[in-house]
Simulated assay, not measured.
Amino acid sequence: MSIWPKELIHSIACRRCVLFFGAGVSMNSTGIDGVRPPSWAGFLTEAASQIDAPRKKKTVKEILALIKAGDYLTAAEVIRNEIRQEKFTNLVKARFHTPDFKAAPIHKTLFNLDLRIAITPNFDSIYETAAGERGAGALTTKIYHDDDIADCLRRHERVLIKSHGTISSPNKLIFTRTDYAKARNSHSQFYELLDALLRTHTFIFVGCGVSDPDIRSLLENYRYRHPYGQSHYFVTASNNFCPEVKSVLSDSLKINFIEYSSTKDHANLSKELDLLKEQVELERIELSKNQAW
């Protein structure tokens, strides 16, 4: 039995869907010596170990408590303040860029869903690598601070929007609480554009956490500004939330959960996405026959 709702398959087939993918997708990739991109928690824990004495023990203890509580923004800000911008930036590049990560099958499957718009808070370039295998010009990449994103979306282009910045411009990454506040004020038109996409397209979130500040803010605003709007879709492992928590999140964020069978390596996510691709291709054949685009 398919886990994918017919309404979602139809939206993807009609290219009226936006893919929003997070760190859980990048973590499928491997780089030099088989190393994988770290999780946000893993990276911050390593970065905290770079704090020098004499206040290291107490400061690191408080940072680790923040990470455990899921307050990654504050933890990142404390770490960056303690080890300074240059050292923090070098560590980011060493962990997310230098290993030369290769695209994983999941990146290729997501790209082959053939959606016009994808958004990611990831600042690695792995998805672009997957797109590059299709040749030059297969994907246009835009960053949250670019002033021509809306123009690109209106052209017939495949667009990837990097909502937290890109590793090639490490000083403009959105990593901390201050970075978020600054971006929301300095680039408010970008967040207005994301809100417009939520109102006009179906979103599918893959490899993301509901605690991501961008996701929560966008979905909460959508939920209460448009109480009768269509729900979006959030793909997650089957054991991530109990029924009571799912019910609260579904209502407060206006999302439908799509669950795949949980395993330690999340291999079933890739399998289910492969099945989704097949179902979308069949739906596009039917739409073409009926001229029901």
Rank of each mutant, 00 (worst) to 15 (best):
A130N: 08
E128D: 04
Q50P: 04
E82V: 03
E7S: 11
G132D: 07
I285H: 12
N185A: 11
S188C: 06
R116V: 00
I63R: 10
L273A: 12
H145T: 09
C14F: 05
Q279P: 08
S238C: 10
D179Q: 02
S169E: 13
K246Q: 15
F43E: 02
E7L: 00
V25N: 05
Y144H: 08
G207S: 11
M27V: 04
I32A: 10
T202A: 00
L282N: 08
S252D: 11
W40T: 06
P5M: 01
K57S: 13
R15C: 11
A136Q: 14
S231I: 00
R16S: 15
Y72W: 03
P105W: 13
H201M: 07
P227Y: 01
C152V: 07
A130V: 12
L173I: 09
A13S: 13
M1W: 10
T178V: 09
R155W: 07
E259L: 11
N90C: 06
P243C: 02
W40L: 04
N240L: 13
M27T: 13
V60R: 08
V235A: 10
A136P: 14
E220P: 00
N81Y: 03
A237L: 03
A136V: 15
R184D: 15
E77G: 15
C17D: 05
K142H: 08
L276T: 06
V248R: 01
K58R: 11
L218K: 02
R216K: 12
A48M: 07
